[in-house]
Design a protein around this nucleic acid. Structure first.
Length: 646
RNA sequence: GCUCAUAUAGCUCAGCGGUAGAGCACUUGCUUGGUAAGUAAGAGGUCACCGGUUCAAGUCCGGUUAUGAGCUCCA
């Protein structure tokens, strides 16, 4: 048979040859590092017989695919076996690879906690030491069922039963045949290819990811070619931990949380400075883009939420309030607003609107409360009270496309100013829980897709992920360490205006319902500030930094000059402070550097007598001695973004 | 909401049945020192909350609350 290699060259091999035979034919080095073969684009075991002419490539242990196969073998053959050895009553569910690692889900009567991981790792090492070869058997559906029934593995039975495959179920065995796992394969030919690994954590996970199903124990691990790669990976994890906004928030004294208000931020002066700067920045951007800022009540009668549809479709997420005092004769039930939209419609509804008023864009930095499930809160990233950079565009069908473009332009501009160059767009369609007729949804989805298509932005579709009132575009940005964050949103709504009776008089003199577009660029200030902190590892752009300059004296003789510099900077609107404490300059530099103050001006005898400063910027150990006037010019220039925003 | 873990000084953590500890931070003294920790002393805790076991409970057990890692959610 004729085999085509990746470099387009050919090899002629006798019928019945395997990937291993091919590798050996090409060279002993390749045969030694080969772990699997890719035949016509499908990965298969190295010892599978190649079925006639094909284009093939050998997968070596050094390649990304090879590492992935190694991780797969490690979880399905080694981890699973170790668990069965240590917890014979446990039931195996599934064990896939994930980015940078793998996990195995098992049902176990005994609690497996992170303290047990070392024990499981030891058992895994013992298994690996046997260097067993791994062999495959193909069996029929009924035989596969029989085997796993005997082994008392109910989850495997379910997997087999639910498969539409009738034959060729792949069973993988090690040398002594005591352990068997059902698997899609391919696997390493033997365990000597296993490199460096580590079990990382234990947690619960629902069977098939459905919260109605039973909770299994999930054991996570990671594996690499060698110890060096593994260590490198673990170091990177530690690096990510260092920029955790919860840790930096404490170090930089930005905010805190406490038991009495879970999921709600106590902003400290430093954190609130960042918040205010970001809000001013957005406020100016949107004013420039035709939005009018409004403000609506926090607590609103349930009647309005019933009319808007929130009471029916969103109540699980709402904080409901009642007045509890005996003397109160109001017995109404209120809800804290989870969204600003119904409030904005109330403003729209004051007075009669004409088509000439459209598009009408209301913006609100509205504080919304949502009752998020207890287990989902996470620092600033997922909270129960947050402020959106919210806005609602009331427009006609014809204006949807131009409004979509205007919004995406605004969003790119803002993201780019904040240091995020790239974002992806997701189009989310009708969810199961929704208001409005299917015809309305057809119309809305078509209009939104037509707009984004016409504008030529690449997008992907996320089926069923729309808001309950309409389809949406979500904007996902990538941060400095490659993580993705869904921030901006643009939601088309053909329902709410009608439900809340918002109308306009058209050119035809008749009443029409406007389209409502719910939109936000940052999403929530809380979350976005969390993202900014992590993206910049706390070293925020100068215009956002809570404290921009510290003037640190070296000896007390220069206190007066330091104060003079402070006054100069304050005149320029710079957030500066002096540090005149009786401490060494290195102590002061260390302290303000760890608080991520962008600029430290060290002031000693020389600076005072020459009217200069010694400037040190965060992230650098250079010290530039500059004339005070020049230094102030440079600092003003650093602030330019902020000035532009005003 | 679910699984597991955690909760001790302002912060980071040790202590795991017998009257509460360290480092840093804080206060005071000495020190005026040139770019990531000068030095000595002092002060600081209802060991998250409620209950139980015990002669005796940060310490063991149960519950509550919060937090963490995941899962499920995420407008």
């Amino acid at each position: 048979m004729k085999l085509t290699l990746p470099d387009k060259s050919f090899r002629e091999l006798p019928e019945g040859s395997s990937g291993y035979d091919l590798a050996r034919e090409i060279g002993p080095g390749l045969a030694k590092s080969a772990v699997a073969i890719c035949i016509n684009g499908t990965q298969q075991d190295l010892h599978d017989v190649i079925d006639g002419d094909a284009s093939v490539s050998i997968i070596t242990i050094d390649s990304d695919d090879g590492i992935e196969i190694m991780r797969h073998t490690l979880t399905a053959q080694v981890l699973a076996r170790a668990i069965k050895n240590l917890y014979p009553d446990s039931k195996l569910a599934i064990g896939p690879t994930i980015e940078d690692g793998f996990y195995y889900d098992v049902e176990s009567r005994e609690v497996i906690s992170s303290d047990d991981l070392t024990r499981i790792e030891d058992e895994m090492r013992r298994i690996i030491k046997t260097k067993s070869s791994i062999t495959k058997k193909l069996v029929s559906k009924s035989e596969a069922l029989k085997i796993f029934k005997l082994k008392k593995e109910p989850y495997k039975e379910i997997i087999i039963n639910e498969s539409d495959q009738t034959d060729d179920f792949q069973l993988y065995y090690q040398d002594d045949e005591k352990f068997v796992d059902l698997c899609r394969g391919p696997h390493l030919p033997n365990l000597s290819f296993v490199g460096a690994f580590k079990l990382t954590k234990v947690s619960g996970a629902y069977w098939k990811g459905d919260s109605n199903n039973s909770m299994l124990t999930r054991i996570y691990g990671t594996a690499f070619k060698n110890d060096k790669d593994l260590q490198n990976y673990l170091d990177n994890l530690e690096e990510a931990l260092k920029r955790d906004h919860r840790k930096l928030g404490k170090e930089m004294d930005l905010f805190h949380f406490q038991d009495e208000a879970p999921g709600m931020v106590f902003w400290h002066p430093n954190g609130w400075t960042i918040y205010r700067n970001l809000r001013n920045f957005i406020r100016n951007k949107i004013q420039f883009n035709g939005y009018i800022e409004v403000n609506t009540p926090q607590v609103i009668d349930r009647k309005l939420w019933e009319a808007s549809g929130h009471w029916d479709k969103y109540r699980e997420n709402m904080f409901i309030t009642e007045i509890d005092e005996k003397h109160a004769n109001e017995k109404r039930v209120n809800a804290l607003k989870p969204m600003n939209c119904p409030g904005h419609v109330q403003i729209y509804n004051q007075g009669i609107k004409s088509y000439k008023d459209l598009p009408l864009k209301y913006a609100e930095f509205g504080l919304c409360h949502r009752y998020e499930p207890s287990g989902t809160m996470h620092g600033l990233m997922r909270v129960r009270a947050f402020t959106q950079d919210d806005g609602h565009i009331f427009c006609t069908d014809d204006q949807i496309e131009s409004e979509t473009k205007l919004f995406i332009d605004l969003l790119s501009d803002i993201y780019s100013d904040l240091g995020f160059k790239d974002f992806d767009i997701k189009l989310s369609t009708r969810p199961e829980m929704r208001v409005g007729s299917d015809e309305t949804w057809d119309k809305a989805e078509e209009a939104l897709e037509a707009a984004i298509k016409k504008l030529g932005y690449p997008y992907r579709i996320d089926k069923g992920d729309g808001a309950f009132y309409g389809p949406k575009l979500d904007f996902v940005l990538t941060d400095a360490i490659g993580r993705e964050w869904q921030c901006g949103t643009f939601q088309l709504d053909f329902n709410l205006a009608e439900r809340l009776d918002a109308q306009y008089i058209g050119e035809d003199g008749k009443k029409h319902y406007p389209v409502m577009i719910h939109r936000a660029v940052l999403g929530s200030f809380e979350r976005f500030i969390g993202i900014l902190i992590e993206n910049y590892a706390g070293k925020l752009p100068f215009w956002l930094a809570p404290q921009q300059v510290v003037i640190a004296s070296i000896i007390s003789d220069v206190d007066d000059y330091s104060i003079e510099i402070l006054e100069e900077l304050k005149k320029e609107g710079i957030r500066a402070e002096t540090d005149l404490r009786n401490e060494k300059i290195s102590y002061k530099v260390r302290e303000h550097s760890s608080k991520k103050v962008p600029i430290i001006l060290a002031i000693g005898k020389n600076e005072k007598s020459n009217k200069t400063v010694s400037m040190r910027k965060i992230g650098s150990t250079d010290n530039n001695v500059l004339d005070l006037k020049d230094a102030i010019k440079i600092i003003k220039k650093e602030n330019i973004n902020f000035k532009n925003a005003n």
